[in-house]
Design a protein around this nucleic acid. Structure first.
Lengths: 300, 300
DNA sequence: CATTTGCATAAGCTTTGCTTATGCAAAGCC
DNA sequence: GGCTTTGCATAAGCAAAGCTTATGCAAATG
């Protein structure tokens, strides 16, 4: 009984072979696997040389499995699928004490950081990794168990959701700004001030115009001002006295309590949506990931 | 659905993991796979880091799979066994037009070479690779479909055999030697001549003393002379006029017919054994290998 | 005939996958 | 209790595998 290690040019070439056979294209296989077509070509060549058999017929714009290739492909597909499923389960279940949470930089900075000590006190032994990105990642594709998502269930049909916070929005300014300008008392007065705009390319966020409408200023058009695509930078600009920005309660309430920000109006725009911890449907979560999920939900 | 290529630190680590789990020892796994213990340790470490889970408990003189490791091991074993079986079949069946034949250098030189053109004429398209060695290789372990074996069925219980030639042995000399010495006519006279001895370390071969006994010279002791462990070199020395050597009929008959060697006695030692093409029992032969086998047997 | 597509291959570079050497801990024996 | 053995973990370093980029070639299409 010969070891597979000696039978194959490389074990990795099986994974390449499976993809190339399924996709009938070396280029497509390379795309799926994050490799070049040439690398795929070499891997298949290695297998063919080792076995002394043609596994593919090369056609124009396409490769087709030979008869021998078909047989081998069926078995390799079956074998690898067993292993993949098991590996995914192992990763999900036995993720052990490491849990990754996908979130925006704003959530990581303003919501999670102030609570990190409490997290450590409540769940000692669990290592939380926060993966920030400028978009909401596909958790399945990235192999990440948990994410923070804005919106509601209709926005995320492939995920389970547990609420963390509602979406309440009000204007905030920094003390430095208010030291130089009259403090606005009404939404109408706010329209006369320097406004800072959040313009995230990948995540929908409420705009100043939407906020004014929610306050009954139906004809108001927010003046253009500083436009920033990262909410952490928006808040920094506010604290630097550059103007007034919309504040999301769950992100700003601690800064307001600390006196670093000032809330400027009694009017709150409540969208009816919220922020949730999300995890993929039909996927096992490790014990630790479940604990993190439950802890997050308990902060609501 | 995440690709295994991204799920695993390396695909090869699965093969290492399977062996280590089965053998409950990194050192033993390394031995089986032709690696060092350290390499096994790194491979397992890579898997554990990637999954964030301990797969083995390290004990003194032993490693044991954890519960998570057990589950994963069962699935990996199943998946890899599918693939291994298929790979072995592919190799055997779809060895395609390449067939390897394991043989001695003497057989390759004196038997196969003179017939190679006929082989090509009879079996066009089949590429024959002759792997020579100074011993009879384990065909299963080497993944070689066919071999040439001396002896009989009792000598090779794990192989099927098809006869190619009997084992008939007579003395041969070169014309250059006979130009300088009286041509011996009887076995007794041969004892007075320079004798060249074959002494192969790994394959049993008839000796001069055995030949003399078969000729009825029971007290005769062959004089020591040139001793060579490769029969091709023996024949070369004979043709150079260095002395007389034992000639195996299936290897020397074409040289005799060509006048390059001279047969010296009417006595022939027939051992009752022979030379066969051999292939492992219970193993599929590719179509091409079967053709080569049948062609070889048909030369008898 | 020109263009597009996609595999094969050469040349070169980076990273992986080891190796050798060594340390450490557990277990057994005297 | 001390010594020896065994076997995994780790550091340092090296070889070669596994790519990448660039280019050539062939088949198909318009």
């Amino acid at each position: 009984m010969q070891s597979l290690r000696h039978l194959l040019p490389s074990a990795g070439s099986l994974i390449v072979f499976e993809a190339a056979g399924r996709l009938a294209s070396f280029t497509a296989a390379g795309r799926e696997l994050g490799m070049t077509q040439a690398a795929v070509s070499y891997a298949i060549r290695g297998l063919e040389d080792q076995f002394g058999a043609k596994l593919f017929q090369r056609r124009h714009r396409q490769v087709l499995l030979t008869e021998a290739g078909e047989r081998f492909h069926a078995d390799v597909t079956l074998g690898l699928s067993h292993i993949r499923k098991s590996a995914e389960e192992l990763r999900a279940r036995a993720g052990g004490m490491h849990v990754t949470l996908s979130a925006s930089t704003a959530f990581a900075s303003f919501w999670m950081m102030p609570r990190l000590q409490k997290f450590r006190d409540d769940l000692p032994g669990i290592d939380l990794r926060i993966q920030t990105a400028d978009r909401d990642l596909d958790l399945v594709a990235e192999g990440i168990p948990l994410g923070i998502r804005g919106g509601d269930a209709a926005d995320w049909p492939d995920y389970e959701l547990a609420p963390i916070a509602g979406e309440d929005i009000y204007p905030v300014a920094g003390p430095a700004y208010l030291a130089r300008a009259d403090t606005p008392r009404t939404p109408a007065e706010i329209t006369l001030h320097h406004l800072i705009h959040l313009d995230e390319p990948y995540r929908p966020a409420a705009t100043w115009n939407e906020w004014f409408q929610s306050a009954g200023l139906n004809g108001a058009v927010a003046k253009r001002g500083l436009v920033i695509n990262d909410y952490v930078l928006v808040i920094q600009a506010v604290m630097e006295g550059q103007g007034i920005a919309l504040g999301w309660r769950h992100l700003t309430d601690r800064l307001i309590a600390a006196g670093l920000l000032v809330r400027l109006s009694d009017h709150v725009m409540t969208t009816g949506k919220g922020f949730h911890v999300a995890w993929p449907k039909n996927r096992a979560l490790s014990d630790s990931a479940e604990k993190v999920r439950d802890w997050l939900a308990a902060q609501a």
